[in-house]
Structures are given as C-alpha cells and as structure tokens.
Amino acid sequence: MTPDGALPSETSIKDPVISIRDLGFSYGESPVLEGVDLDVLDGEFVGLVGPNAGGKSTLLKLILGLLEPQQGRIRVLGQSPRQAVRRVGYVPQFPTFPRDFPISVEQVVLTGRLGFGPMLGWYRATDRAAAHQALAEVEAMDLAHRRIGTLSGGQLQRVLLARALVAEPAILILDEPTANIDARMEGDIFDLLARLNVRLTILVVSHDIAFISGYVDRVACLNRTLVCHTTERVDGDLIHQLYGDNVRQVAHAGAGHGHAHHLGQQGH
C-alpha cells in the first residue's frame, strides 16, 4: 500500500525533521532511554516498535516537549521541541479527556485550531472550514455533530486524527493508533496514513511490526536504546525474531548485515 515511488530513502539529501542525539532519560533510578540517536527525514514514514516499557511513549513525549531530556539533544524542524510543537500533530494512544464530556466531534476537532489566529474570541469561518476538511479527509464527516462519548474505538481514532490534521502539521506522530480497534479498521487507518504520507512526515508507534512493515519506509526498534531497519530488510525471519521478543537479536542482525545505511550516526 505504501506508494513506492514516494520512498524517500533514495533521495537521502533531505534534512532530518526530527534529529535526536545521545538522548537519555530516566524516571527516578531506572533509565528508560539511553544513548538514543535517531533521524527522521522529511517525508519519511517511520514505525517505532519495541517491547512494552521499552521507552516508546517516553520518546514521543520528549519529541513533543512534554518532557525535558536529561541528556542529549532533540531538534524538531530545526527548533527545540517546545518551539516546534505547534507544527507537530499528535494522536495519543488513549484519549486524555473524560469520555462523558459534553462536547461534539466538531468542537473537539476545532480545539486543534488553537494557536491559529488571534488569541481572543471565537473560532473563525476558516477554522470551521479547516475542521470540516479534516473530518472529510478521515472520512468522518457524518460524525461531526455526534457527542464524543458515543463514538466507537475506530471512529474516535479517526476524530483524534482529524484533530491533529486540522492544525496543518508538518509531522504527524501517532502512539499505537490501532491498539483499541479491530484488525479490519487497522488496515483502513494505515491506508489513510499512507495517503497522508504524501504530504506529511509520519512517526508511528506500534506493537505490530509485521503489520506496519507493509506500510512504513523504515522501522526503528526501541528497547532503552535504538536500532533501525529499512523495510526492505524486514523479512520473515527478522519479524519472527522480533516476535520472539528478543529485540537485542535484531540489533545484532541489523549491524551484521550492515544495512542501517541511511541512519547516519546510528549508535550501534
């Protein structure tokens, strides 16, 4: 499903839109991330996989500026994460709002327009037009007047995606976008992401490397430290190894075959 012609790995002159160097972070005593180096290039579709508690969500929070790195450096679109965050669209794994909140889908999507236009007053006509366009793009226009609490898991995921898109981001970051929905809709969501990848850089966290390898340009495997692979090389064997939940093995396999080629300053 990935538009092969748009594979950016051949034209690797592009600048990294996310650049991470020697990143370290820990909650209290135990380190969650250590020596992480990662570049995401303009226009790439990168999948971030790894075991639970491997630091995936923490890495996203650091990229979004919700956490401050204790070591190393992150640049997003050439700026600090906090400065760049308005140009980053984010879809969380779990909604961070109460489901029974009295708000319509349209209003939820409109909150994505905060930061546009003047600080005071109500949403403008351009904001509403953008919200409708975003809802149409995720094929959820019919949900506009539904209350947020009445949506199914798949519908909610589309609406959250629309809320991220309405801010006209340059980068889209998604944390397990298909964790709470069934397999059929998982494919729909990733088809949608593949279409969006034509104009957006996408970084998606997933537990399902077998599934996402059909869509992404490159997989980054995170378990405290980081190892990357291009999709071409993620063959059956490798997937099997990952499913055998030994992520270390992937590290060795990757280094052994020597095809971490466009990762530049990859640590391993």
Partner: peptide
C-alpha cells in the same frame, strides 16, 4: 469567558492536548 472561551474549553476538556497546541 467570552474572550477566552476556546482556551478555557480546551484546558477543561484536554489539558495535555491544549499544552501541545501552545495554550
């Protein structure tokens, strides 16, 4: 409330997302 309705709604509804939008 009229002047800051959007921000107050966003902060009431979803603090994390509001922060990500620069509110």
């Amino acid at each position: 409330v009229m002047l800051f309705y959007r921000q107050l709604l966003a902060v009431t509804f979803d603090e994390e997302f509001a922060r990500l939008r620069g509110v």
